[in-house]
Amino acid sequence: MSKIVELINVFALLSLLAVGGGTAVLPEMEHVTVERCHWVSDTQFAEIYSLGQLAPGPNMTCVALIGYEVSGVAGLLAVLVAFFFPACLLCYFASKVWDAAEGSPWRDAVQRGMAPIVIGLMLAGCYALGKTASYNPAKDWDVNLLTLGIGAAVAVILSLTRINPALTILAGGAAGLFLLG
């Protein structure tokens, strides 16, 4: 039971701190769930995040799987509610206030001020995932070369084409199977 309460505390706070989208809380989430609470390993965290990229809808629904790892189905449901409900409730009331502040020059200031913070957080998220998923010192150099190569290839392909990102994730899985298997 205490595990469930702990899950709810962690994910409810993350929910409210997710400025500029779920990706912004990725580095904090990785640090808390892997290094502080030891709920999942760093590899599991990267894999769970990747599974989220293969499902439709908001890509952060995958956080439910961290709850599942900790406390089974009860943990899954607890995390889902804790991660989505507080932010939605805040949005409900804050969007009313925001409508009322229509035309205030401070709205623009908030938006332009927060933009670089969100980018910094997203970069930290890339680093938090990449330090196990792209370059893992515990693995051989040829594995690391391949994982770095897959990541670079996906980034380049997505920059140059309008292919569905989920397909590039599946292609990464196929590359892993045929080149590492």
Binding site: L26, S50, Q53, G172, L179
Partner: peptide
């Protein structure tokens, strides 16, 4: 090994979205 490839690709996607 499939998951290794999937996770490596997910990092590429995240980097591209961030940039």
């Amino acid at each position: 090994v499939v998951l290794t490839g999937v996770a490596a690709a997910a990092v590429g996607l995240l980097v591209q979205v961030t940039l």
